Simulated scan of single mutants.
Amino acid sequence: MPTSNTRTGHSTLAEELCFVPEQHLTEVVQTIVSHEVCPELVMATGTLLQLATTVSWARRPDNLLGLDIAQDHDLVAHFHYPDLFHTALHHAGDLRDVDHIADLVGAVLAGKTHLHH
């Protein structure tokens, strides 16, 4: 992937979205473009989802107690990231909604709900 443009000091889109799992980058970019989201909201949404995943891990049910925090984040990143990002985007990256998004992450990981946008 290209690196920062040293002449202009601007970073590439891939650098800006380094928190997005590579296998989901195209789908997340499509979501960002279709919703005409500004970079600040993209970052806030990524932060909300990251924090919500951590909160969800802390509240995980007994059958998921064997997962360490990295494994939990990996599961979200590998299987559910685009849908959860889309949902967090609709919450405008508002950290006051971290509990709601954490509950949703937990439900998705437990197989109790499926996300669709």
Score class of each variant (00 low, 15 high):
Val20Gln: 09
Val20Ile: 13
Val20Tyr: 03
Pro21Phe: 05
Pro21Gln: 05
Pro21Arg: 07
Glu22Cys: 05
Glu22Lys: 09
Gln23Trp: 05
Gln23Thr: 07
Leu25Gly: 00
Glu27Asp: 02
Glu27Met: 01
Glu27Val: 03
Val28Lys: 07
Val28Tyr: 00
Val28Ala: 04
Val29Thr: 03
Val29Ala: 08
Val29Phe: 10
Gln30Met: 09
Gln30Cys: 06
Gln30Glu: 11
Gln30Pro: 01
Ile32Trp: 00
Val33Glu: 10
Val33Gly: 01
Ser34Val: 01
Ser34Met: 06
Ser34Cys: 10
Glu36Lys: 09
Val37Cys: 07
Cys38Thr: 12
Cys38Asn: 10
Pro39His: 08
Pro39Gln: 11
Pro39Arg: 06
Pro39Ala: 11
Glu40Ile: 09
Leu41Pro: 02
Val42Lys: 06
Val42Arg: 09
Met43Asp: 08
Ala44Gln: 04
Ala44Asp: 06
Ala44Lys: 05
Thr45Tyr: 00
Thr45Trp: 00
Thr45Gly: 00
Thr47Val: 08
Leu48Tyr: 04
Leu48Met: 07
Leu48Asp: 00
Leu51Asp: 12
Ala52Asp: 04
Ala52Glu: 02
Ala52Gly: 05
Thr54Leu: 14
Thr54His: 13
Ser56Ile: 00
Ser56Lys: 06
Trp57Val: 08
Trp57Ser: 04
Trp57Phe: 12
Ala58Trp: 13
Arg59Gln: 13
Arg59Met: 12
Arg60Asn: 07
Pro61Trp: 08
Pro61Gly: 10
Asp62Gly: 11
Asp62Pro: 09
Asn63Phe: 15
Leu64Ala: 12
Leu64Gln: 10
Leu64Cys: 08
Leu64Ile: 10
Leu64Trp: 08
Leu65Tyr: 13
Gly66Asp: 04
Gly66Asn: 03
Leu67Pro: 01
Ile69Tyr: 03
Gln71Trp: 04
Gln71Met: 10
Asp72Asn: 15
His73Val: 14
His73Gly: 11
His73Asn: 14
His73Arg: 14
Asp74Val: 13
Asp74Thr: 09
Asp74Ala: 12
Asp74Pro: 06
Leu75Asn: 13
Val76His: 14
Val76Asn: 13
His78Lys: 14
His80Thr: 10
His80Ile: 02
His80Gly: 07
Tyr81Glu: 13
Tyr81Arg: 09
Pro82Asp: 02
Asp83Glu: 14
Asp83Met: 14
Asp83Trp: 12
Leu84Met: 02
Phe85Ala: 00
Phe85His: 03
Phe85Val: 01
His86Val: 03
His86Ala: 10
Thr87Asn: 02
Thr87Val: 12
Ala88His: 04
Leu89Phe: 10
Leu89Tyr: 11
Leu89Val: 02
His90Ile: 00
His90Ala: 03
His90Gln: 07
Asp94Ser: 07
Arg96Tyr: 12
Asp97Arg: 15
Asp97Cys: 15
Val98Cys: 08
Val98Met: 04
